[in-house]
Amino acid sequence: MAKGAVHITVDRCKGCAICVEFCPTHVLALSTAFNGKGYHPPHVVNAEKCSGCDLCGMYCPDFAIYGFKLGKQGVAQ
């Protein structure tokens, strides 16, 4: 069970990929899909590896992603 998860606000994203690069466990990749503004938002490719550390959230210049910890039952803490 993953220790954390991310929430992505797709329509805020500008596809800079900074979150993808600086996620320590390579949870994210840019999607091939477009958002409403024509950018490629990230999606989760390695959900099990997410620690909920929120580094992606700290780096994101667009407030479009953040990570959070999950408890034993997979419930947000």
Binding site: R12, G15, Y39, G57, M58, Y59, C60, P61, F63
Partner: peptide
């Protein structure tokens, strides 16, 4: 939001740190 800053501009990242 979305704000006017360009894709990959660093200003938004500083705002994250400030809010925290």
């Amino acid at each position: 939001i979305p704000h006017i800053w360009c894709p990959g501009c660093g200003i938004g990242t500083t705002v994250n740190a400030f809010a925290r």
